[in-house]
Computed example of a mutant assay.
Amino acid sequence: MSTRLVYVAVRAQRPSALAEFWARLLGWTVTLDRGDRVDIAPPDPGLPGPALTFRAAPPGAPAHASPNRLHLDLASYSPRQQDDRVRLALELGGDHLDIGQGAVPWVVLADPEGNEFCVLEPRPEYVGTGALAAVVVGAAAPARLAAFWSVASGWPVARNGAVAGLRSPTELGAWLEFIPHPGPGDDRLHLELGARAGTAAAERLTAAGAVARPDGGTRFLDPEHNPFCLVEAERGQPTN
Rank of each mutant, 00 (worst) to 15 (best):
S2K: 04
R4I: 04
V6D: 12
A9Q: 14
V10L: 14
P15R: 14
L18C: 00
A23M: 09
L26T: 09
W28C: 11
L32D: 06
D33S: 14
D39L: 10
L47M: 04
G49N: 14
L52S: 05
T53Q: 10
F54A: 10
R55Q: 10
N68P: 01
P79D: 11
D83R: 13
L92N: 02
D98T: 04
D98M: 08
G100L: 07
G102M: 08
V108M: 04
V108L: 10
A110V: 02
D111Y: 05
E113N: 05
E116Q: 15
G130A: 03
V136T: 14
V136W: 04
V137S: 11
A139G: 03
P142Q: 09
A143I: 03
A147T: 08
S153D: 06
R159D: 00
G161S: 02
G165L: 08
L166G: 06
P169G: 01
L172Q: 15
L176E: 11
H181E: 13
H181V: 04
H181W: 14
D187N: 13
H190C: 01
L191Q: 10
R196G: 15
T199D: 10
A200I: 02
E203Y: 01
L205K: 02
A207K: 11
G217Y: 06
F220P: 08
P227V: 01
F228M: 12
P238Q: 04
P238C: 08
N240H: 13
N240L: 10
